[in-house]
Simulated assay, not measured.
Amino acid sequence: MTHFGPVSRALAFAAVVVSTGIAVAPAYAGPAEVALLKSYIGEWRGRGTLVGAATESVVCRLSLTQGNQEKINYSGRCTLAGTNLSVAGTIAYVDASRRYEAAMTSNATFSGIAVGQKRGGGLVFNLRERTPDEEGKEMNISSQIALNDDSMSVSFEVVYVESGDSLTAQVPFTR
């Protein structure tokens, strides 16, 4: 069994949080898409649980602000396993691909790709990716970030390919 150290847990969590983003192409969104993105502008706080070999608390803060053109910028910080994870990025609707897309950077040097879809009155970003951790061990990552009215939730699962060990987390956010 793999025993996830603080850095390994933080990197796996970073991979999921960062994976909400991609390099955003120029956006030319219509009024409805822009209005939906702007509805999430504000300060968000989340508290949840990371479950793996041990159970740990995850505490996050996220700020969404108006960016250039029709884009929304975000920056945030999560604390878990005695480690701080910083993230920053941009969310936009890209007419050329007819979807919501996001870009993110982090202090964990991870980047990933996620695509958002409108569901009901909100947005849902899903990601499935395979990437190595800091020790080169392959991880399968599945995550979902749901934005709906005055709530946001992040859920994810990281499975280490070689051992089958996993990390899961649920982090609900409110304004």
Results as ranks from 00 to 15, higher is better:
residue 126 N to V: 02
residue 74 Y to S: 01
residue 39 S to R: 05
residue 100 Y to A: 02
residue 107 N to E: 14
residue 72 I to Y: 06
residue 105 T to L: 10
residue 116 G to Q: 03
residue 83 T to M: 10
residue 82 G to H: 11
residue 38 K to I: 00
residue 47 R to C: 01
residue 108 A to C: 07
residue 53 A to T: 15
residue 94 V to P: 02
residue 76 G to W: 00
residue 75 S to W: 04
residue 85 L to G: 09
residue 125 F to N: 01
residue 141 I to V: 15
residue 149 D to T: 08
residue 110 F to R: 12
residue 58 V to R: 07
residue 91 I to S: 00
residue 76 G to Y: 00
residue 93 Y to F: 15
residue 37 L to G: 02
residue 118 K to E: 15
residue 84 N to Q: 14
residue 71 K to E: 14
residue 80 L to P: 01
residue 136 G to Y: 05
residue 111 S to I: 14
residue 123 L to D: 03
residue 50 L to P: 06
residue 79 T to N: 12
residue 110 F to C: 10
residue 133 D to I: 02
residue 74 Y to T: 01
residue 62 L to K: 06
residue 70 E to T: 10
residue 104 M to A: 05
residue 109 T to N: 15
residue 68 N to F: 00
residue 131 T to S: 04
residue 63 S to D: 14
residue 78 C to E: 12
residue 77 R to F: 03
residue 117 Q to A: 11
residue 58 V to Y: 06
residue 54 A to W: 14
residue 95 D to S: 12
residue 81 A to V: 08
residue 41 I to H: 10
residue 120 G to A: 11
residue 65 T to S: 15
residue 137 K to D: 11
residue 50 L to F: 05
residue 34 V to Q: 14
residue 45 R to Q: 13
residue 142 S to F: 12
residue 98 R to S: 12
residue 56 E to R: 15
residue 35 A to V: 00
residue 33 E to A: 07
residue 56 E to G: 11
residue 113 I to V: 11
residue 100 Y to S: 01
residue 112 G to S: 12
residue 44 W to L: 00
residue 125 F to D: 01
residue 81 A to M: 09
residue 53 A to C: 09
residue 92 A to Y: 12
residue 34 V to L: 07
residue 123 L to Y: 00
residue 85 L to K: 08
residue 109 T to I: 09
residue 147 L to W: 15
residue 125 F to Q: 02
residue 77 R to H: 08
residue 68 N to P: 08
residue 60 C to R: 05
residue 33 E to K: 06
residue 101 E to V: 09
residue 47 R to S: 08
